[in-house]
């Protein structure tokens, strides 16, 4: 069953179109990431769903009920949609217990302890928000939003205010929490790692609309176009030419059902291998070493190719001559408009 259905949503601020023709369906129990560069309208889309903004056009349906649309308007407090704010927006005048209990009425107050246990904050119920670390505040915000058992939980860049070390741990924790509670959630992010590692599905958003939806594997391996490909990871986009169901490009030929004519071919850096070769056509220009792997930037025929190699390779320093081979998938994409 669909928990959220957004159709043709549009929202303008003055002359700026923040969201336009926005479609998204989220199914019961799934976590969906809404990934897009900053300024693409993803936070506005989230606020339209939560009822904090009124759409200029289109409709929002939560379960069976149209909550925003022509002639329909349900205020945020009656939507059963929880929202975790980017800066968490914990009430500074209330302690942790009162923050979590804010959306609960009388007899359900007992849930607070249960929730705090769920997010591993038992024992901190009497603290004030400013007495908590960033990670703890974040978990209070999630517990608070989950407390009234919303039909849909929205998370607006929930990890962006945490430092990198903490982020990975909290991410795992949140993913497990969402699965354990069977919560249907939409997670807004501009971070590709977050968008790939947390959700069941990813909706990629560009310039106010959703351009592709799929599992993380699908959108990574078969992006709709070059912009989506770059948004999801490092990408070599090589010029190619399609003819009769085959696409030729600098590193070979692949199958691809594109209309005849120029196109692009996506080759992820990990689909390439570089081996030292004094007669190699390519030269290493730059190396970024990350420990578990390294990204080489290589010059070949005036073009630049990025190559990812697992494990340390001290022999491939800047200036080294290398031979580059295609060892993974090459994905033909329609030419840039």
């Amino acid at each position: 069953m669909n928990v959220l259905e957004a159709r043709g949503l549009g929202k303008r601020f003055g002359s700026v179109r923040a969201v336009e023709g926005f479609d998204l369906v989220v199914r019961e129990g799934e976590t969906c990431a809404l990934l897009g560069p900053s300024g693409c309208g993803k936070t506005t889309a989230l606020r339209l769903v939560a009822g904090l903004e009124r759409p200029d056009e289109g409709l929002v349906r939560i379960r069976d009920r149209v909550v925003a649309g022509p002639g329909a308007w349900v205020p945020p407090e009656a939507r059963r949609v929880g929202l975790v704010f980017q800066d968490w927006a914990l009430f500074p005048h209330l302690d942790v217990r009162a923050n979590v209990a804010f959306g609960l009425d009388g007899d359900r107050r007992g849930r607070v302890e249960e929730l705090l246990e769920l997010v591993h904050l038992d024992g901190l119920a009497d603290r004030m928000p400013h007495e908590l670390s960033g990670g703890q505040q974040q978990r209070v915000a999630v517990a608070r939003a989950l407390a009234p058992q919303p039909d849909l939980l929205l998370l607006d860049e929930p990890f962006s205010n945490l430092d990198a070390q903490l982020r990975a741990a909290v991410r795992t924790e949140i993913r497990e929490l969402l699965r354990a509670t069977g919560t249907t959630a939409v997670l807004v992010t501009h971070d590709r790692e977050e968008a790939l590692s947390v959700p069941d599905r990813v909706a990629v958003m560009l310039e106010g609309r959703v351009v592709q939806v799929g599992t993380p594997f699908e959108v990574y391996a078969a992006p709709a176009d070059g912009r989506v490909a770059r948004l999801l990871g490092e990408a070599n986009l090589l010029p190619g030419r399609a003819r009769g169901g085959r696409v030729r490009f600098a590193l070979g030929e692949v199958e691809g059902s594109l209309p005849d004519g120029p196109c692009e071919v996506l080759v992820r850096p990990e689909a390439l291998r570089a081996t030292p070769d004094a007669d190699g056509e390519a030269r290493v220009d730059d190396v970024a070493f990350y420990g578990h792997d390294q990204l080489l930037r290589c010059a070949i025929d005036g073009a630049t190719l990025e190559v990812r190699l697992a494990g340390p390779h001290p022999e491939l320093g800047p200036g080294a001559r290398v031979r580059i081979e295609l060892v993974g998938p090459a994905v033909p994409l329609p030419a840039r408009a």
Partner: peptide
């Protein structure tokens, strides 16, 4: 910061209750 009041609304509190329980104390 408007997000405090917005948070109260998404937690099921109406306009008046939000004013009384969030805006006024702040």
């Amino acid at each position: 910061d408007p997000s405090w009041e917005e948070a109260a609304r998404t937690l099921g509190r109406g306009r008046w209750e939000t004013f009384r329980r969030v805006t006024l104390p702040l």
